[in-house]
Each structure stands twice: as structure tokens, then as C-alpha cells.
Nucleic acid binder design. Structure first.
Lengths: 157, 157
DNA sequence: CTACCTGCAAATGATTTGCACTATT
DNA sequence: AATAGTGCAAATCATTTGCAGGTAG
């Protein structure tokens, strides 16, 4: 289904209005599906199509989208929250590779943790509803470069 | 080895001083190894043994410990950074269970990701230096309780 | 009209920083 | 004396909130 229509439905179902501002924000997210944008980044980009928009609206909209499970909020330790569109219904299943040399952030769409989640259920009596898996490291193709230290101090595991 | 002596060595090796303030902070971390304390929490606890201590010193010391890989900084989406003592040398290997009913945070000391890390190396040419794995969900023993919603909005994956 | 949304500006809260002071070598 | 470390207060930065005005059903 057309993603906009799909999202529009979800808004309607929960009695929220898909205002032009919200549409513009969603559009930016769709156009940058590969990235993990911060509020400020979304704000800047939406300003192009909707110059009058206020920053608080971006915060409020992203929070709303999070509540509707349309986006996922996450924190990579650079001091800002970042947002990522969720794929299909229950696709909470993706992992991240973060390269400490080039800073690239790659998303892995497979779910490698199903076995572990079963094991948690069995051994710990814990039912998983969501998970997060990030790997820090370096791409082999990056190792020649000198190690950038810049934000290393701020880094959050 | 005595953990204090060990840490003391690491300080000396990098030409840092293990001042009484820093010792007091490290002691609090050792005494609460099971928890993931926030700066504010560490501050409160150190105040008992060292009432004169300033908050900025706690920030600075925890950042330093992070740099020395003695603690790990992490963010569970409640708005504050939390710190966790690392175990042995390269023991970056633990995972978290976060119960959305009782809020409990359990640490799993095993490393379940070795196979995945090998696979990343093979299939993605990515060499893992560290990882983070958190599971959100509920303990079976918790499910009777009504679902606390409190901080849910703030939650970061 | 009523309830939801928005924009703005002010408030908040965590973290950082400038600076003068202290302690250690 | 020189340098690293500290405490305090002020500054900064992301995020939230109060409120007055706008908009859609």
C-alpha cells in the first residue's frame, strides 16, 4: 500500500489529524528512509517545503509518530534523539552497524535474534516486545584511514 | 586483582591522578555494580562519604572513566546517561532485559553474539569492537500488574 | 462552537565550560 | 613554580510546556 495512505489511515484510526505540517514531516521521513534523522535535521528539511513550520511542531509530531509506532526513536550517543521509519507492521527487527572510522551507519534489515528471544522466554520467563542491537566497529575498507576521535568522548555505547 | 588497585594502575599508566574524589566515585560504582547509575545518583551517593564534592566533578570523572574503558556510558531513553562498570579486560559482552511493567533492568552476562559478529566480518567486512543489545518486554511474573505508562512516551528504543 | 493543532517564547533539565582556587610533584 | 584537578556559577543545548490564536468538523 502507498505509505502515505497507510499512515493517513493510522492517523484517522486514532482520531489524529494529518495536517499539512504533519504530512510535510512524514514526507521528509519517507524521502530519507535510509537515514536516522534528528529533530533538527527534519526541521531544516521540512522548512524547504513548509517554511513557516515551528520546531516544537516537529518535536510533537515525531513523538506522535512514535506513539503510533510509525517511527522509532533512538539514541546513538551524539546528544540528540534520532528517528527511523519502521517498515511493515511488526518490523521492529533491524540492527545497526556503526563505523568508528567513517561514521557511517548501516542498517541491517534481517532479524538475527529470533532464537535468542525464544531462549529468553524459556530461560528467563521474559517475553520480548522489542529489541535493539547495535554494533560498533570498523569496515575493513575503512581501516587505512586514521582514527577520527572527534565525538568519541560523547559516545554512548 | 583487587579492583581498586587495578583501576589505580590504569590511572597511573595514563598519567591521571586517582584523587580522593575520584576514589570516592569509583567506590560508589563498585558498591553498586549491579545498577546502572545516573550522574545524579552517583552524586547523591558520593555526597555521603564526600559531602564537599561538586556535580561537575562527577561528570568529569565519569567521562574520564569512560575514556579509560573502566565504565560504559549508555542511554536507556529516560533522559539521563547511565554508567556501568565494565568487567574484565574485554568484557564488553553483556545484554539487558528491560521490563516495561516493573521497570526492572536485568543484566545478562553471557555473550550471545559471537556467531553474529563472525558473520558480520564475513558477510559485511565489518569488524566489531563493541556492541549493545537490549531487549524490551515483560517478565511472565509481571504480566498481572497493570501496565505503567509513566515514562513510556520518553522511551527511546 | 468545540476540540485539536500550531507557532512562538519562555521554562526546564541535563550537561559543559570558564575561572579562580587548591593540591600535588 | 608548574600542572592537573576541583568547586562553583554561568552558559549551552536539546527538549518541553504555556498560552494565544488558527483551523477543521
Amino acid at each position: 500500500m502507498d505509505p502515505i495512505a497507510n499512515i493517513s489511515q493510522q492517523f484517522a484510526a486514532q482520531k489524529y489529524k494529518l495536517t499539512p505540517q504533519r504530512q510535510a514531516i512524514v514526507k521528509v521521513l519517507l524521502d530519507n528512509e535510509k537515514d536516522h534523522l534528528s529533530v533538527e535535521e527534519v526541521y531544516m528539511m521540512v522548512k524547504n517545503s513548509y517554511p513557516h513550520l515551528g520546531l516544537a511542531t516537529v518535536y510533537r509530531t515525531l513523538e506522535l509518530l512514535c506513539e503510533l509506532h510509525i517511527v522509532e526513536k533512538m539514541n546513538f550517543g551524539d546528544g540528540v534523539s534520532r528517528y527511523d521509519l519502521r517498515g511493515g507492521d511488526h518490523e521492529h527487527m533491524h540492527h545497526h552497524l556503526i563505523c568508528s572510522v567513517c561514521g557511517r551507519l548501516e542498517e541491517i534489515k534481517e532479524d538475527w535474534l529470533l532464537d535468542l528471544e525464544k531462549r529468553l522466554e524459556r530461560e528467563y520467563g521474559f517475553q520480548v516486545s522489542d529489541h535493539r542491537l547495535d554494533f560498533k566497529g570498523t569496515y575493513n575498507t575503512c581501516q587505512k584511514t586514521s582514527c577520527k576521535r572527534e565525538k568519541a568522548n560523547k559516545a554512548v555505547s
